[in-house]
Simulated assay, not measured.
Amino acid sequence: MIKRTAQKIIEESLYKGKVITIYGARRVGKTTLSKAILESQRAAGKRVNYLNCESSNVKNRLETTNELQLKDFLGDYELVVLDEAQNIERVGHILKLLVDTYPDIQIIATGSSSFELSNQVGEPLVGRGREFKLLPFSTGELAADMGMIDLSGRLESLLRFGSYPTVFGVSETDAKEELNDIAGKYLYKDILAFENLRNSDLLLDLLKLIALQVGNEVSLHEIGTILGLAGTTVKRYIDLLEKCFIIFRLPALSRNLRKEIAKSRKIYFYDLGIRNALIQNFNTLDIRNDVGALWENFCIVERMKRNEIRRFRPNTYFWRLYSGPEVDYIEEHGGRLDGFEFKYGTTGKFRPPRRFIETYENSTVNLVNPDNWYEFTLK
């Protein structure tokens, strides 16, 4: 089993009087991670328990504000995992009651979609909790398990099939089946319930349009026109898809020049296997016309994973002038801007955009390609 980097960080945060919440899309390994933490803590002599909140019995017993009944149900354990905790009504208030009344019981709550769990948990647990976001395997986790040489040999596979735990390392046939299963059965489950929608065709069509525009600026008006939806409706669905850890947005940087793109957004996928399943394109890279977009998406999401595990949260952007010069990805931190351009091909000399360097003091722009990608995503 590939060890998740988050496990060590989460274990270092235990028994400090705070609820630990683990968010992530379905099938990214939240249950596996929480059970690994339980086993580790059991081996250290702690009394631990696992509760599946999709069970009606567990759900009913936890939906009370009677602290004595809660304590009676939880028992004499030092660490309790509440898996899929978003199924518990008013879960945030119940977690607040538990941490305030029984601070010696460490609670770990997992949730498959942030719009269900964090909306209920966020405000009640202000100052009482720590949040962790779990994504598909990162290249850092994979490199720690197999080494950089073997991982580099699987780079094309990562661009085609992504890194969901149940997908990575299996045959291409099995990978396609699993990704189609996730995209068909699990991807929209929370949104359909939240929006009371019975048909996922609309969300599927929206995601297909986004998938075909990875690396380009996305027009909500244009998407709305194609789908027959108002721009505000498109924005709401994109918000929900982002909160379900399917896609994420990157805004434009614009501060000094009139010719800078200001209000545009780019949209990327948290996993390229899901993106490719949506458009049913698992072809090898030598016969694809979207390799540049795949490479850009891959580098940015792997950098995000790196930053998340380090608890490093810079402001992030892309930059472009109407006349063409652009920077694919920018991190703003410590009063400086660090820009990156992503090129899958390694030919030609790279020159940073002159207008960007001249306009923003203390800025840099570096090239990320298959020869040095690990420095960008791992170091």
Rank of each mutant, 00 (worst) to 15 (best):
139 T>F: 10
141 E>C: 02
142 L>V: 06
142 L>Y: 00
142 L>R: 02
143 A>F: 03
143 A>E: 13
143 A>I: 07
143 A>Q: 04
143 A>S: 14
144 A>S: 15
145 D>A: 13
145 D>Y: 15
145 D>Q: 15
145 D>M: 06
147 G>I: 01
147 G>S: 07
147 G>Y: 04
147 G>C: 02
148 M>Q: 15
148 M>V: 15
148 M>L: 15
148 M>T: 15
149 I>Q: 15
149 I>Y: 14
150 D>K: 11
150 D>F: 05
150 D>Y: 03
151 L>R: 04
151 L>S: 11
152 S>M: 07
152 S>L: 06
153 G>Q: 09
153 G>A: 06
154 R>D: 11
155 L>E: 09
156 E>Y: 12
157 S>A: 10
158 L>H: 11
159 L>R: 00
159 L>G: 06
159 L>D: 07
160 R>S: 09
160 R>E: 14
160 R>V: 15
160 R>C: 05
161 F>V: 07
162 G>N: 09
162 G>Y: 08
162 G>T: 03
163 S>H: 03
163 S>Q: 02
163 S>M: 08
164 Y>S: 06
164 Y>K: 03
164 Y>H: 03
164 Y>L: 04
165 P>S: 10
165 P>D: 10
165 P>C: 09
166 T>Q: 13
168 F>R: 01
168 F>V: 04
169 G>H: 02
169 G>T: 07
169 G>Q: 02
170 V>I: 14
171 S>R: 09
172 E>Q: 08
172 E>W: 11
173 T>H: 14
173 T>C: 09
173 T>D: 15
173 T>N: 12
173 T>G: 11
174 D>R: 14
174 D>A: 15
175 A>R: 01
176 K>S: 07
177 E>I: 10
177 E>S: 12
177 E>Q: 14
177 E>M: 13
177 E>C: 02
179 L>H: 08
179 L>E: 02
180 N>L: 12
180 N>Q: 11
180 N>W: 11
181 D>M: 12
182 I>S: 06
182 I>M: 00
182 I>N: 03
183 A>G: 08
183 A>H: 07
184 G>A: 13
184 G>Q: 13
184 G>Y: 12
185 K>R: 15
186 Y>H: 15
187 L>I: 08
187 L>T: 04
188 Y>R: 06
188 Y>F: 14
189 K>M: 10
189 K>P: 07
189 K>Y: 13
189 K>V: 00
189 K>Q: 06
190 D>V: 03
191 I>H: 03
191 I>Q: 05
192 L>T: 01
192 L>Q: 08
192 L>F: 00
193 A>T: 11
193 A>I: 14
193 A>H: 12
193 A>C: 04
193 A>G: 09
194 F>D: 05
195 E>H: 07
195 E>F: 01
196 N>I: 11
196 N>Y: 12
196 N>H: 14
197 L>D: 10
197 L>Y: 09
198 R>K: 14
198 R>H: 09
200 S>Q: 13
201 D>E: 14
202 L>Q: 05
202 L>M: 01
203 L>I: 01
203 L>H: 04
203 L>Y: 07
203 L>S: 02
205 D>Q: 10
205 D>W: 05
206 L>T: 08
206 L>G: 06
207 L>R: 10
207 L>G: 10
208 K>M: 10
208 K>I: 07
208 K>Y: 02
209 L>D: 05
209 L>N: 04
210 I>A: 01
211 A>Y: 01
211 A>I: 01
211 A>K: 05
212 L>M: 05
212 L>P: 06
213 Q>E: 12
213 Q>S: 12
213 Q>D: 14
213 Q>K: 15
214 V>S: 01
